[in-house]
Design a binder for these strands. Structure first.
Lengths: 269, 269
DNA sequence: AAGTGGTCTAGACCACTGG
DNA sequence: CAGTGGTCTAGACCACTTG
């Protein structure tokens, strides 16, 4: 309640808790404010997700303070805080004490290593450089259209990259993206090592989650040549679909890894 | 403050917030209660972890209500709640509205599937039956002693199991445990499919976390025979160290998986 | 000094569960 | 019905950052 009309009337004023004035007489602001079945903090959470998705608060920006958000949304600071906690836990926001709450750019995010889990047998863990082998455009196969949730035959771009660890070709990446989502990707011939950052900066596509399926596969003759190993060598295949918010597929990537000197690390708590 | 002496004087009374009486005059219980650098809710968290570890609250039991804990520990209900939130998030406790907060038994825990991630290409996901192939006792190798944090040459037990998915031998498990930690494991000749539950029920060893390293490997002649495949077939090797609280190693397991019909699934958020 | 997030409290009412 | 966890509020003080 206490709509705090006027002063905080931002552009993106929300259809949030429409009416619900007065009608309560408890001595001091004690009032159940939930509107339907869904808790208030979830509504705040949803509202903030919307704003992040629509780049009302773009990457790198500071969002309004907890007090300001509370006033604007007509809830208590504690409720805003609870919603923020969830978003911070997911890595969608970062708090800096004494400064404020920020929308992280992708390299600040856990994402950098969240999406790269190969670790050397000696503990080494760095994002290795990638060499672009090929880049072509074509009509999506059935599998590609399924994975990327595209209409059949949609134009897609296919990239082939080799990553070098310790100067040895170690990972072979086959990347497929929709031309409609990331138009002209890799046309210049060169591409940054860190593609997700590129997607965010150049296309405003922020990858926030991914699903990976791992299996073992034998190196084909072509793959073996690129990885400088014998055909038939066992490789770790990582089949990954990367999503932006709302589980919209952005990229399909199949990586073939030579695990003779590196493992894929998983920490289960 | 307000020690609530007497009535809640449980057996396991804690050395918690030793002194710190009076000395504050705010009109109504407003008082910074933190003792050192560490927040109160973390101290509560630590105290509860202790009790779980020492089985003061054994698996399956209900722990005292938030109000009771608050009174006993001399903090507010909100602070207890915050500590409980963390433990619940980790899966160490489970809340049931209207009932109370419980120590989950292992099969209630996420653990069952937290530690088994093979999923069929058709989406099938079940814990498959295991057949015990061999069980021997011997002196720990250097690697085994390192992994399990044991003195050199300690007695260890080595199990070899085959798991059947769809009646096909698909996973080969080499398990190593310290005899001192799990004495007599598998001596009867038969063992349950779900070893972690067995560890908890028969030995009071509760596995709460694990670290896995995945790589590709070629099937040896012996492995190939057990898995009924051709030698040299690429297999997914999962090298896993399982811990109980405080990161004490309990089990070292190397699984070799035939991934022709199943993948290892990872969800990254 | 002002403003931010971080911790803590007290107390209200709700929704759910069991007897 | 009483007891439990679930939500929400208001307000206090702390620790940290910038100016």
């Amino acid at each position: 309640m206490f709509r705090h009309a006027g002063e905080t009337d931002h552009a993106s004023r929300l259809a949030f808790l429409p009416g619900l004035e007065g009608a309560l007489m408890a001595p001091r602001g004690r009032a159940p404010r939930r509107i339907g079945q869904v808790p208030l903090y979830e509504m705040v959470d949803g509202e903030l997700r919307q704003r992040l998705l629509q780049k009302v608060y773009p990457p790198g920006a500071m969002i309004p303070s907890e007090m300001k958000l509370a006033a604007e949304l007509g809830v208590s600071q504690g409720t805003v805080r609870r919603a923020l906690n969830g978003l911070v836990d997911e890595g969608l926001l970062t708090r800096r004490q004494g400064l404020g709450t920020f929308v992280p750019e992708i390299e600040d995010r856990r994402s950098l290593f969240l999406f790269f889990n190969m670790i050397g047998h000696d503990g080494q863990h760095e994002l290795p450089p990638a060499r672009l082998e090929s880049c072509e455009i074509g009509a999506a196969t059935q599998a590609e259209a399924d994975r990327l949730a595209l209409p059949p035959q949609s134009p897609v771009r296919r990239l082939l990259r080799v990553r070098l660890l310790r100067d040895r070709p170690t990972i072979l990446e086959r990347i497929v993206v929709a031309e409609a989502v990331l138009p002209g990707l890799g046309e210049g011939g060169a591409l940054p090592d860190h593609l997700f950052r590129h997607y965010e900066r150049s296309y405003g596509r922020t990858v926030t989650s991914a699903e990976e399926r791992l299996r073992a596969a034998a190196a084909s003759f072509g793959d073996a040549e690129l990885l400088e190993i014998a055909p038939g060598t066992p490789l770790l295949e990582i089949d990954r679909l990367a999503f932006e918010a709302e589980r919209t597929p952005v990229e399909w990537r199949r990586s073939l890894c030579n695990t003779s000197a590196h493992d894929y690390l998983v920490d289960r708590r």
